[in-house]
């Protein structure tokens, strides 16, 4: 069976079984390895992608539930002005330690600032609560968000 997904602005025909969670289609079939597998349980945010502008985990929902939606992975964010600004701010604030959570956080922050460009600190912290970082890069991430807002 063939499924067509819209990923980073392009229509892509995929051959994985349609019940395959999106992340395995991205990583294993399409070679888009920016989304990381942290839990496979929608508990950690490492696998987040933008779906119609929302940051959502890609590790559980089957690929065929994303038909007709606009998927943007971390690899496609540089083409979006907010995404590019968020990436630059993460770099200038060294908002990563090991970097395993970083792609998911860049996606989550981009979604937040697209929706709410002036989010206050409490809103930012609450919005990022689905994303786990075990290395403690949080303070730098918050500083990067401040910079990306402006």
């Amino acid at each position: 069976m063939s499924l067509t997904l819209r990923i980073n602005g392009a229509e892509v025909a995929v051959t994985s079984e349609p019940d395959t969670p999106l992340i395995y289609v991205l990583r294993d079939e399409l070679g888009l390895k920016g989304a990381k597998l942290g839990c496979g349980l929608e508990q950690c945010g490492a696998c987040m992608v933008l779906v119609d502008g929302e940051a959502v985990p890609s590790c559980v929902s089957p690929a065929d539930t994303f038909g007709g939606k606009e998927i943007t992975t971390v690899e496609g964010l540089a083409d979006d002005p907010t995404g590019a600004r968020v990436q630059a701010a993460f770099v200038s604030h060294t908002a990563a330690q090991c970097g395993y959570c970083t792609a998911g956080l860049v996606v989550a922050v981009t979604a937040l600032l697209q929706r709410n460009p002036d989010a206050d600190t409490k809103t930012v912290k609450d919005a990022l609560a689905p994303n786990i970082c075990r290395c403690g890069s949080h303070p730098r991430v918050l500083r990067a968000v401040e910079e990306a807002k402006a």
Partner: peptide, 14 residues
């Protein structure tokens, strides 16, 4: 770092 924020940094998983 630049690769991490773009999702192109290679971890052993990748």
């Amino acid at each position: 770092l630049a690769e991490m924020v773009r999702g192109t940094f290679t971890f052993v998983h990748d």
